[in-house]
Design a protein around this nucleic acid. Structure first.
Lengths: 369, 369
DNA sequence: CTGAAAGCGCTTACAG
DNA sequence: CTGAAAGCGCTTACAG
C-alpha cells in the first residue's frame, strides 16, 4: 500500500505538501512541487485511504439516504438522482431502508452518525422532530424529502399532496360519485395525512358526498408485495361488506393503486363501470391499462435533484437557512373515473389527456430564519 | 466526543480492554470488567467511530452495490435484499449506478477500493474480467449478479436466461408466429447475449422461422425513460419499415417491454391481434393489461438474498471457492401471444395461467476449484 | 510556499 | 485475562 510517506520520499517533499496537493486543501503549493507530487503519486500507483481522511477530518464524504423502501419506484428515483449528484462530486452514497419502522430509523441514524456521514436525505416515518435530534446534535445536515417534521427544523422538499388529492377527488365528484373510499398507508407520516386532508377538502364542497377512510389498516404493511396484498384485501372488504359500498376509490400511492387494481381484477370488477379509481403517483403502465388511470404524478426526479442540491449547500454553508419547498403534482386525467373519457375497449381512440398543475406553480418556497 | 480513552478512565481499565469489550474481538475479558466497560460506555453516551476502526483494521464494514441502475425494479429488489441482510449485521450499504458505462464502473470500483469496502455485489457492464482485477488485487470479495465474467473468476448468481428466452419464443412459435423480432439492450453483457441465444435456439428448431434482431440500437440507452423511448422507436421502425414486418416481439427486459407496449399503444396496434408480445421480467401491472402479458419472471429476491449470503461467506472465509448459481425463471404464460388465451376484453374471464419453471430446477450450481 | 511534528480514535502484537 | 505502547494514513496548526 502506497502512502503519503512514500510519495513524499519519492518526490522529495514533506507529507504536508503531499496532502496539500492531493487533497486540494490546506493552502497553496508551488506549481513545481505540485507537479512532482502528482507524478510521484501516479508513478507509485497511489490510492487514497478515505478512512484515514475521515478520521482526521472527523467527517466522511458519504451522503446517506434513509428511506422507507427503495423498491418503491418513487424512492428509487430520488435515490438515483441524489446518488448521481453525489458521485459527480466523488461522494459515495449509503442506502438505508426503514420500512417505516421507527426503531430501524433510529438505528440507521445512529449508524450514520458512527459513519460521520457528510449529510442525510431522509424521508422520516413520523413527523416527530426527535427523529433528527441526534443528527443535528452531531452537526450533520439533513434534508427531508416527501415528508416534513413538526416545526420544519430542516429543509423539506415534497409534493403538494393536498392539491393533488383534492383534484383527484374533485374529478370523481364531477363524475357523479358521492361515496368515495380513500385507501392510504400509515397516517403518521406527511403524505397520507395531507392527501387525506385534500380528499376531505374536496368532499366538503359537495352536498351529500361522503368519504370512507380505509386508513390504518395498512399501518403494518412491509414491502411492496405485502402492501399490495393488504391494499387489495382492504378493497375487497370495502366493496363487499358494506350495505352501501363506495362507487369510487382514491389510492394513496402507486403501490396501493397496484394492489387495488389487482384486487378488482380478482373479483371481476370493472373500472370504471363497477367502481372508479384514481391514484396518487403515476407509473408507465397506468396509462396502458384499460381504461387508462387518472393520477396525480409526483415530480420525483425534481424532488431528488433539489434535495441533493440543497444538501450540498448546507454542507458547504452550515449556516444555510432551512426552507420548505412544495412542488405541484401533475394531474393526468384519463378515463378511470368514468364518464367523459369512457370508450369501448375494442375500439380504441386516442385518449384525451388533460394535463395540468395543481397548487401554486412552480413551487412554493418558505424561508425560515 | 467520547472515546475509548474516556471510557477506560471512567471504568478504570485500559483502552485495550475497552476495545476488546466493545468491538467483540481481540480476546476474552472477565465478566466483571466487561460489565464495567459497558456501563461506562452507556453512562458517557459513547458512539463508535467507524473511520478510526476502518483505518486501523484496513477494512470497513461497508458492502458496495455496483449496478446499472437502481431505478430498474429488478436491481431495486436485489439492492433491497442485500441492504437488509447487511443492515442486520450492522453493515452499511453503498449504492453505485453505472448506467452500463464502463468508465463509470471503473471509477466506482476505484472509489470502493478507497473506501476499503468489505465486499462488492456487482452487475458488471461487460464480461471482461479486467473489470474486477483491481478489486481482487485489493483483496475485496466480489459476487456478480445478473451477469458473469469470462472464466467466472468470482461467484455469479443469475437467471437461466437461455431457458427463459427459449420458452417464450417457443410459445410464440406454437402460436404460429414465424417472423419474430427480439428487442434487447446492450449485447456486451450477459443477459442480452444469453437471451438472444435462447431466442435463436427456439427459432432454429422450427422450419421457416426467422429472428429479426433489434440489438445494438439500445446500446446508448441511459435511464429508464430513455430506454423506454429507444425501445419504442425501434418497435415503430421494425413494424413499419419492413416489407414483411415481424408478427411477434420478444422484449429483453421489463423496461424494454414497457417501451414497446407504449409504442404499440401510440401506433394503435393491438396485442396480440396486430402483433404478439412476450417479455423477459415480470411486473405487477403486466398481469392487468388487456391482454395479460406472457413473461419469464426472474427470481430477483432470491438472487439478492443468495448474493448477500454468499458475499458474507467470502468475507468470513477468504478461501471460499467461487461458484456459479443459475436460477430458473418462472414462465407465466398469459394471453399476449395470441390464440389459446384470447378473449374479448369486454367479457373478462378468469385467466388461465400456466406456471412452470424452465431450466434444471431448483438451481444449477457449478463449483470451481 | 514549505516542513517537522502532533494527533485523530481505534486495534493489536507483546509482555506479563 | 489485562495493560502499556506503537501505529494505521491522513491533516493541520505552527514555525519559518
Amino acid at each position: 500500500m502506497v502512502t503519503y510517506q512514500d510519495i513524499a520520499r519519492h518526490a522529495g517533499v514533506s507529507t504536508a505538501t503531499v496532502s496539500r496537493v492531493l487533497s486540494g486543501v490546506g493552502g497553496a503549493v508551488s506549481d513545481d512541487l505540485a507537479q512532482r507530487v502528482r507524478d510521484s503519486a501516479d508513478a507509485l500507483g497511489y490510492r487514497s485511504n478515505r478512512a484515514a481522511r475521515a478520521l482526521r477530518r472527523n467527517t466522511s464524504d458519504t451522503i446517506a439516504l434513509i428511506f422507507p423502501d427503495v423498491e418503491q419506484p418513487f424512492y428509487a428515483t430520488i435515490a438515483r438522482q441524489v446518488e448521481e449528484r453525489a458521485a459527480s462530486r466523488g461522494r459515495p452514497t449509503v442506502l438505508c431502508n426503514t420500512d417505516e419502522d421507527l426503531e430501524r430509523e433510529q438505528d440507521y441514524i445512529a449508524l450514520m452518525i458512527e459513519e460521520r456521514v457528510a449529510g442525510v436525505v431522509l424521508a422520516p416515518s413520523s413527523e416527530d422532530v426527535a427523529t433528527v435530534f441526534p443528527l443535528l446534535e452531531a452537526g450533520i445536515p439533513v434534508i427531508a424529502v416527501d415528508r416534513r417534521l413538526d416545526g420544519d427544523p430542516v429543509s423539506s422538499i415534497l409534493t403538494d399532496n393536498r392539491a393533488g388529492a383534492y383534484e383527484l377527488v374533485a374529478d370523481l365528484l364531477r363524475h357523479g360519485h358521492r361515496r368515495i373510499a380513500a385507501i392510504t398507508g400509515t397516517t403518521v407520516a406527511t403524505p397520507s395525512r395531507e392527501r387525506l386532508e385534500g380528499c376531505r377538502g374536496a368532499i366538503a364542497e359537495v352536498d351529500g358526498a361522503e368519504l370512507i377512510v380505509g386508513e390504518g389498516k395498512l399501518r403494518d404493511a412491509v414491502g411492496v408485495e405485502n402492501t399490495m396484498d393488504l391494499a387489495g384485501r382492504l378493497t375487497a372488504e370495502l366493496l363487499s361488506s358494506w350495505a352501501d359500498p363506495p362507487t369510487a376509490l382514491f389510492c394513496g400511492n402507486a403501490v396501493i393503486t397496484q394492489g387495488v387494481l389487482r384486487a378488482l381484477r380478482a373479483s371481476r370488477r370493472r373500472v370504471p363501470r363497477d367502481v372508479a379509481v384514481v391514484g396518487f403517483d403515476d407509473q408507465p403502465m397506468f396509462e396502458l391499462l384499460t381504461p387508462p388511470l387518472t393520477v396525480a404524478a409526483q415530480p420525483a426526479e425534481e424532488i431528488g435533484a433539489r434535495a441533493a442540491d440543497e444538501l450540498f449547500e448546507h454542507i458547504t454553508d452550515p449556516g444555510h437557512a432551512p426552507a420548505v419547498t412544495i412542488l405541484p403534482p401533475e394531474l393526468r386525467f384519463r378515463a378511470s373515473c368514468g364518464g367523459r373519457h369512457r370508450r369501448r375497449a375494442r375500439d380504441p381512440q386516442p385518449e384525451e389527456t388533460r394535463e395540468g398543475s395543481a397548487g401554486s406553480a412552480p413551487a412554493t418556497r418558505q424561508r425560515h430564519q
